[in-house]
Amino acid sequence: MQALERDIKLLLIEALNLEDLTPEQIASEDALFVTGLGLDSIDALELGLALQKKYGVSMAADSEETRQHFASISALARFVAAHGKVAA
């Protein structure tokens, strides 16, 4: 799961143009929105599209379940591992 979390961190950095961050600076359990990284709804859309392109996952745009998946990198990794196309 650590490799997948690192891949998602790299995807997040690339998709949102966060060049001043490294994967090591993003804690897997930290919140992605409001606190933590402080991402916003536009960032969520861009990250969702990047996840869909890379892993073939899709989520409802505005649901409580989606908010839970986007809570942290580790939550996203669990969702992608369960529902996405991840190379072994």
Rank of each mutant, 00 (worst) to 15 (best):
A61Y: 13
G84A: 00
S72M: 14
N17V: 00
A50F: 07
I13P: 02
L47P: 01
I13Y: 06
A3H: 15
N17I: 03
F70N: 00
E64Y: 03
I26C: 06
Q2P: 11
L21T: 06
G56C: 15
R78L: 05
I8H: 11
E24K: 09
Q2E: 12
Y55N: 08
A61N: 15
R67T: 06
S28D: 10
K9R: 02
K53R: 09
D40S: 01
E19L: 15
A82V: 09
L51F: 01
A87F: 07
L49K: 14
E14A: 06
A75L: 08
T66A: 12
N17D: 06
V57I: 13
Q2V: 15
Q25I: 14
E65L: 03
A61G: 13
A87E: 14
R78T: 04
A60C: 03
I73A: 04
E19I: 10
Q52N: 13
G56E: 13
G48N: 09
L39V: 07
G36D: 03
G38K: 03
A27L: 14
F33D: 10
P23Q: 10
A31F: 04
V80A: 10
S72D: 15
S63T: 03
S58N: 10
R6L: 15
Q68F: 10
S72K: 09
L21P: 13
F70E: 06
T66I: 05
G36L: 02
L21K: 05
G48D: 09
L18N: 11
A61P: 08
L12M: 13
A15E: 01
A3I: 06
A60P: 05
V34E: 14
M1H: 15
D40F: 00
L4C: 07
E14G: 07
D30I: 11
S58L: 07
I73Y: 07
P23I: 06
R78M: 05
V57Q: 12
E29M: 04
K85Y: 08
K53W: 08
S72V: 06
G36A: 05
D20I: 12
G36K: 01
A61W: 15
R6P: 09
A82M: 11
A75E: 11
L18Q: 06
A71E: 12
I73V: 01
L16S: 11
I42H: 13
M1N: 04
A27F: 14
A15W: 00
K85A: 01
V80N: 05
A44I: 07
D7F: 11
